[in-house]
């Protein structure tokens, strides 16, 4: 990987591999601590970590507003109104 290095006993690729688990808070404290030590000393990982977390946040914000489509919901109401037990 471009600019790959080893800091705090981890290569950038190993940090990259665990980024989602890091964001979800799913890592054991010692693994978390090593990743944080790497990122403090590695500007590539610091920058990419910021971008990745912003991207995941953006996905959440934009898509959560995408369940509205009035005509589809109106047609669902019509259909459900006709259901019989």
């Amino acid at each position: 990987m471009r600019g790959e290095r080893e800091v705090a006993g981890l290569r950038c690729g190993q940090v990259l591999e665990q980024l989602s688990e890091y964001l979800e808070g799913e890592l054991a404290p010692e693994v978390r601590g090593r990743i944080e030590a790497h990122v403090r000393a590695c500007d590539h990982c610091a920058r990419f970590g910021g971008v990745f977390s912003a991207a995941v946040g953006a996905l959440r914000v934009v898509l959560r507003g995408s369940g509205e489509q009035a005509d589809a919901h109106a047609r669902l109401d019509d259909l459900l109104g006709r259901l019989e037990r």
């Binding site: 990987m1 950038c12 690729g13 990419f48 912003a54």
Partner: peptide, 13 residues
């Protein structure tokens, strides 16, 4: 990771 912008300084928050 590279495709997602690792090492790309123009891809920013």
């Amino acid at each position: 990771g590279e495709a997602a912008g690792f090492g790309d300084e123009r891809f920013t928050p």
